[in-house]
């Protein structure tokens, strides 16, 4: 599967959602769950089906005052892994 295209609009797949309990964020999906924190949580929160992948990278670079190329590489690899599990679609 290719990496997310700059103009793609990543979103949580059907049957996947984030739940917050006692300040712990958990991404729930069929037959599984991942605890999210830090950048990973922020990336998934930005996957709202509206914001483009390029927009997500720009936003993260701004929020974390980090190099956009590096953010792009890391966010892309992260979303690709979630896509293979059908947790994120793009």
């Amino acid at each position: 599967m290719p990496q997310p295209a700059p103009e793609s609009q990543p979103r949580l797949s059907l049957g996947c959602r984030i739940t917050m309990r006692q300040d712990v964020a958990t991404l729930l999906y069929p037959e599984g769950a991942i605890r999210l924190q830090g950048t990973a949580l922020r990336i998934v929160q930005l996957c709202d089906g509206v914001c483009s992948f390029q927009g997500i990278v720009t936003q993260l670079a701004h929020e974390y005052s980090a190099d956009a190329d590096r953010i792009q590489t890391e966010a892309s690899a992260f979303l690709e892994r979630l896509q293979a599990k059908r947790i994120i679609d793009f």
């Binding site: 797949s13 059907l14 069929p30 037959e31």
Partner: peptide, 12 residues
């Protein structure tokens, strides 16, 4: 299965 798709439900 047709209903599941029509109602857009996560499905295994």
């Amino acid at each position: 299965v047709k209903e599941i798709h029509a109602q857009n439900i996560a499905f295994t």
